[in-house]
């Protein structure tokens, strides 16, 4: 463990704990927050209380929030200087994910809009 302590001044791996006493609280807090956000998502999906067209945006916000809770409290990703490498890799991952998902949706929506209706296609 001596080697571990000297290294943690420079770099920190994801999921690494500083000390045992502090972390159980972080897991409990993360578990509670994630549970509340999950229940809020399921409530938002079937309630008539929220303006219906806004529900998908609310669901997306709750999901992103819960992913953040998991990253911070379970995977222990922080914004500290020793976490720079992990954050950079995460940022690149999020960038690629966004590119693939939104790029695909945009391109396919465009193709659908430009597609000839099926009836006309048959007559050609």
């Amino acid at each position: 463990m001596e080697q571990d302590d000297s290294a943690s001044a420079n770099d920190r791996a994801p999921g690494e704990h500083r000390d045992g006493q502090h972390s159980i609280r972080s897991y409990l807090l993360g578990f509670g927050l994630a549970g509340v956000l999950t229940l809020a998502s399921f409530w938002a999906a079937q309630t008539g209380f929220v303006y219906a067209p806004a529900v998908p945006i609310l669901l997306a916000a709750l999901a992103v929030g819960q992913m953040g809770v998991h990253l911070v409290f379970f995977l222990h990703i922080s914004s500290g200087p020793e976490d720079t490498n992990n954050i950079l890799a995460l940022a690149f991952g999020v960038f690629v994910v966004g590119l693939i998902v939104f790029g695909s949706m945009l391109i396919m929506a465009n193709l659908n809009a430009n597609m000839m209706p099926a009836g006309q296609l048959m007559q050609m």
Partner: peptide, 29 residues
């Protein structure tokens, strides 16, 4: 070089992110 603990877990973190990229392709589909 960083300690083995840091290198191994950073490498695994990269694997996890690439696994999430795989899932993102399935989400897009």
């Amino acid at each position: 070089p960083a300690s083995t603990d840091v290198v191994v877990r950073f490498g695994f973190w990269l694997f996890l992110l690439s696994d999430i990229v795989v899932f993102s392709a399935l989400f897009a589909a």
